[in-house]
Nucleic acid binder design. Structure first.
Length: 273
DNA sequence: GTAGCATGGTAAG
DNA sequence: TTACCCTGCTACG
């Protein structure tokens, strides 16, 4: 389940498992059947993420564009010892590689919002709608700042807007605002450049760590369960966080009860103090 | 058993 | 603003 770090991690796993290999492409569930048939036998040239979007390069100006949405899953099974097992449940797209001297591998995509075949131009059009992604080397953070500094929209909404910043989801927005003591309802216009720069740099660090570990950890060393002598509390990502889904529980820094409210159709969590 | 919710986003009205 | 996409988990009865 995906914020940007999940997609970048996935791109890496797919590239490792399938890079340079001929892949069998199928759609057991059927909704990607025609495209899968056209791609079957292609060489998997690479995989790349931009924000929460994944692009698999299958050569000949063909890319599979994947967006996992709220509950999509893309499982990669590298180094399969025996037979590749039959698909379980609704598998939109299955990639299989094997018989080429390298260990067999397969990957199943389920429940995705988007799984479509696009050209390079189509891929560019999708990317053009997205803001800079803290996880990309070629990111231009000034593009996001240009929008934030002239918007009266609350900063918590701007951070979630993929046109402003790509890859940040509901967990990272709540956590990064907490770490910088920023009121989620402050309008973008009220932020100073220095504050934005610090938020961006922190997102780069936090999300890189997320790619490395596969979970979201945002708690500083002095507030870890070990340091504070409290019970470890792991969120759904398996990580340690300050406020996400901690409604009513005491803030690790000041003890104030964590609050929640709806913002842009998503639950926002923050410490009011 | 099943209602409700979730790390997301689009399209219709 | 609302409906919808279409999966998996948890809380509840």
């Amino acid at each position: 389940m995906p914020e940007g770090h999940t997609l970048h991690r996935l791109a890496g796993a797919l590239a490792d498992a399938f890079g340079g290999r001929v892949v069998r492409v199928t759609s057991p569930q059927g909704r990607f059947a025609a495209e899968a048939a056209a791609l079957d036998g292609a060489t998997f040239e690479g995989a790349e993420a931009w924000g929460k979007h994944l692009f698999c390069d299958l050569g000949a100006d063909r890319y599979v564009h994947v967006h996992l949405g709220l509950y999509g899953k893309h499982d990669v099974h590298a180094d399969e010892a025996g037979e590749v097992p039959p698909p379980v449940g609704q598998v939109r797209m299955r990639l299989v590689a094997g018989g080429d001297g390298r260990p067999a591998a397969y990957a199943d995509l389920r429940g995705a919002t988007a799984c479509e075949l696009v050209t390079g131009a189509g891929r560019a059009a999708i990317v053009a709608r997205l803001g800079p992604d803290p996880l990309r080397e070629d990111a231009e953070p000034a593009r996001a700042w240009a929008r934030i500094e002239r918007s009266r929209t609350p900063i918590a909404a701007l951070l979630m807007d993929q046109k402003v910043l790509a890859g940040v989801g509901n967990v990272y927005r709540a956590e990064v605002l907490f770490r910088h003591r920023l009121d989620p309802y402050r309008p973008g216009t009220s932020l100073r450049r220095r504050q934005y720069d610090a938020v961006w740099a922190d997102l780069v660090d936090l999300m890189r760590e997320g790619v490395r570990t596969g979970r979201i950890d945002t708690v500083r060393p002095e507030h870890t369960p070990e340091a504070m002598g409290r019970e470890p509390r792991r969120d759904d990502h398996g990580g340690e966080v300050y406020v996400y889904r901690r409604t009513g529980q005491p803030c690790f820094v000041c003890g104030t009860a964590v609050r929640t409210a709806e913002l842009v159709a998503r639950n926002l969590f923050w410490c009011p103090r």
